[in-house]
Amino acid sequence: MDLFFQQVLNGLTLGGVYCLVALGLTLVYGVLHVPNFAHGAFYMAGAFVSFHLMTAWGWPYWLAMLGSAACVALLAVLAERLVFHPLRHASPLHPMIAAIGVLLFLEAAAQAIWGADFQRMQSPYTGIVDLAGVTAPVQRLLIIGAAFALVVIVHLFLTRTVTGSTIVAMAQTREGAALVGINANRVAMLTFALSGVLAAVAATLYAPINLVYPAMGHLVITKAFVIIILGGMGSVPGAIAGGLIIGLAESFGAFYVSDHYKDIIAFTLLVVILSLRPQGLFPNAAR
């Protein structure tokens, strides 16, 4: 039974990180209809900036996280302005390829600045808590707590503030949003900034129990895509539910099926589900 709860804990940790990454991805898809392949590079950049702020400049963990969030938000806005905005009327293929261009550039840049090696990020929270037989590293609990707090904040922002609801409105209909006088440019930039913040925070939370390296975004972003397809592209609740499902599935799969193949689980799940239901799990979700 303890082992079971251990897996739940691991699953929630993974799920929390996936939720944050998928949330940013799904918002950008909802508003701009671009599958932003560069989002994984934003995640990677978030980890490296935090790492750099902590090791080279000696910033404390939380401050580094904030600094990194600001940097990546700026990066995301730049990408929107310079790359995706000029392509808003192009065929669906072209923004996709452009996103790949941004991804390749950012990875190469990270490699040029920080090298291709695997780096370890120190977290101030190295303790281990014993919760009725379940050993829980504090950093994991922190990830769960921070991720879910952030998800709630984003949810409140999207539903309770005017700015947030314009994002949701635009995700539903672009033309409609233009009619009621929403400044589409501002919303697009804001959405990108928000997605950057979420990616940077997720990366900084997760990095201490993982490693920091230029290709670290690949698997995470691909899984985030799986999540938002399962949850309905553009759907916020879908991203959260999907993130938890994939996180738990991986954690349990790694333990009860095979640790060796744990990374395949998410993709296999997607292939199986889309084979049976091409419309995804929640076909009525906002697309």
């Binding site: 691909t222 060796h260 193949y261 395949i264 993709f267 889309l274 091409p278």
Partner: peptide, 28 residues
């Protein structure tokens, strides 16, 4: 026959996952 029922971006994301599965299967 599975992936081509999906349109546009969905097809690309699906095949991205297929690519990873192929890579991981070869590796593991």
């Amino acid at each position: 026959i599975v992936s081509l029922r999906l349109k546009g971006h969905y097809f690309s994301i699906f095949t991205l996952c297929v690519g990873y599965i192929l890579f991981l299967v070869i590796e593991k």
